[in-house]
Simulated scan of single mutants.
Amino acid sequence: MAEQSPEIKGGGSLILAWQVRNKRILMVGGGEVAAGRIVNLLNADAKVTVVSPREGLNPEVAYRIKHNQVTYIDRKFQPSDLDDPSIVMVLTAVDDPVAGSEIYKLCKEKRIPANIADVPPECDFYFGSVHRDGPLQIMVSTNGKGPKLANIVRRQIAANLPSNIGDAISQVGVLRRKLRKVAPGIEEGPKRMQWYVCAVI
């Protein structure tokens, strides 16, 4: 039995699809890196609060603020920004590494997961390179070691996917919901799976 067990290869990350819909995320910084993070958060339907002086805002971040896509606080970060109990995650993208480290320490004290941009040791989680087509999301992660390389690998994977894969997955989702209505019981799971496989194949 032991011979069939997979070999443990430490040093990886636990890759998850973190559901942040309607959850409050604090973004400290308003530059180019912050702009990319904000897009990811808004695509995940998160409620984003941006803390950054107005003079340092990236044009895209300014656009999000102008159109009320994020909540905006026009100043530098203050420790009291972490007092909101609804905050479930903190991201920083600031040019001051000392300030980033201090924010990370404060987050650890409050047990709030944090990502300090470009400082892998001070990240509870990493952002990968993501390909999205409707409901399909594929992330390539290098655990903070090579973001540019992750982007190259992600593009190669995406180039080999069928052009209509997102629509196909959406239709599969519709089928699954219909089958759950026809055979809703837990004990009917094998029956649903059989119908599902026949329909997809």
Rank of each mutant, 00 (worst) to 15 (best):
I25Y: 00
S101W: 10
E102T: 04
I138G: 02
I116Y: 00
L16Q: 02
V200N: 13
D133E: 12
G29M: 03
L136K: 06
P184Q: 04
Q4D: 12
G100T: 01
L26D: 00
T142S: 15
G100Q: 05
R192T: 02
E55G: 03
L16G: 02
Y72C: 05
E122N: 11
T92V: 01
G146K: 10
N68H: 15
R154W: 05
R24T: 04
G146C: 12
R192L: 03
K76H: 15
L57T: 05
K76P: 14
N58Y: 08
S101M: 08
G134T: 09
H131M: 06
T142I: 05
Q78V: 13
K23C: 08
A159W: 01
L57F: 06
K148R: 15
A150L: 07
Q194T: 14
M193P: 09
Q19T: 08
A199W: 10
F127C: 03
I112C: 06
N143R: 14
S80M: 13
E32R: 14
V94H: 02
K105P: 01
E109L: 11
S163A: 14
T49K: 03
K105I: 02
Y196N: 12
S129P: 05
N143P: 11
P53K: 13
A183G: 00
P97W: 04
G29L: 01
A34K: 02
G10R: 14
Q194C: 13
A159E: 09
V88L: 15
S163Q: 12
V197K: 14
T49D: 02
M27F: 01
